[in-house]
Amino acid sequence: MRNTPMLCSRRTSAAASAHTPSTVTEAVLPGIVDPEDIEVRTRAAVPAGPRQVVLALEAAGVSFAEQQMRRGKYYDQPPFPFVPGYDLIGRVVEAGEGVPESVLGRRFAVLTKTGAWASHVTVDVRDLTEVPEQVDSAEAETFVVNGITAWQMLHRLAKVRAGDTVLVHGANGGVGSTLVQLARIAGATVVGTASTKHHQAVRNLGATPVDYRVPDLEDALREHAPQGYDAVFDHVGGEGIVASYRLLAPKGTLVSYGTASTRDVQGSSKAPVLKLFARLMLWNALPNGKGAHFYNIWAGQRRHNAFRAKLSTDLSQVLALLADGRLVPHVAARIPLTEVGEAVRLAESGTVVGKVVLVP
């Protein structure tokens, strides 16, 4: 069941508000800059339009996508300057025309792609997914884009079942740690790559850790699944994707969802992705029963209603698992929005487990 509030049949004559802001503070990427040069600006607030709500920020994440945007390397980012921020948790403080006043004061999760790094964010009411009140906002935030991504890759693409053996690259990361937990809940055995300093954290999640720096990584991973893996989740891309495909069992599924290995490589942001697409298409043409997919959370968004329903359904299931205590959140740090540079620097350092979260 979707948690998005139904629109009223009547149309209100004016926007309803709880604590409507007069100004908005937001973090702006002015161009390709170092983290400390991300600008914090204040502008006049704009009232909510028809079928819109204004959310007061409670938590927004710092994800790999924003790290790529800072470098001008995210595949379809908007032109500079813009406000990044892939997702957020916030409370409704203003409801526009056509929106029921019952949403005021309630807390929702929203996937935005950009714009979430702000004290107040205006979104379409149809994009809201309610957050259980017993869940902490920062902890819920760690499972918005990460939770949707992991759930859809695991259940909609790879269709992992009890008894499967899966490989998760970057098992200590935001999406990786969520994948591990959801796969274990589904009854799968999980092997996860991570640096040795994060191995205990990976074990605590229920996976067997393998050091991704070992020179014979493919052989080391094959030892844990001699018959191959039923599913491999790879955010690294680059040449390592070839080994990920070779590690598949007959009829196994490779899900690629990033090109982290090219994060600091100069040049076109599109070239690594296009090369990856070409490889996946070639592998899918082979008559060996293996599947190879590239996951894009925005695939299908042109069918707005179906796309929104799927996102909300999947996120609601993830948040329910969190509320029940079956998913363990990992908040690496809570840093004020006004100190966004410090937050980005920390998120990119590779020294933390979990997600860096921006708070008011």
Rank of each mutant, 00 (worst) to 15 (best):
T193D: 02
S9C: 08
V83E: 10
S316M: 00
L29E: 03
A138M: 09
M281V: 10
T351F: 00
A162G: 15
V121S: 02
P81S: 06
P50I: 01
E139L: 01
R279P: 02
I297S: 12
G98R: 10
L346S: 01
V202R: 01
V131F: 01
R279N: 15
S349L: 11
T262N: 09
V103N: 12
G267Q: 11
V352K: 10
Y229G: 05
P81T: 05
D76S: 12
D37V: 00
Q317L: 13
L286T: 11
T149C: 03
L327S: 06
T42G: 10
E130P: 01
L128R: 08
S17V: 15
L337R: 08
T4G: 12
H199D: 03
L282W: 03
P50N: 05
V160W: 13
S137P: 06
L205S: 05
D219R: 14
Y74S: 07
G115W: 02
R51V: 08
H198L: 10
S268R: 07
R2K: 15
V340W: 07
A138Q: 08
M1L: 12
D264N: 12
A271T: 14
D34T: 15
G341W: 04
F307H: 14
D37Y: 07
R203C: 11
S269E: 07
Y74G: 06
S261I: 12
P272W: 03
V168Y: 04
L167Q: 07
V123W: 01
A343G: 03
G72Q: 08
T142L: 06
F307S: 08
P81G: 04
D324M: 04
L322P: 02
Q68R: 14
H155E: 09
A65Y: 01
G176Y: 09
V344Y: 12
R51E: 15
P47T: 13
F80A: 12
A207Y: 02
D127M: 06
W117M: 05
V93R: 03
L111V: 12
Q68S: 13
S177R: 02
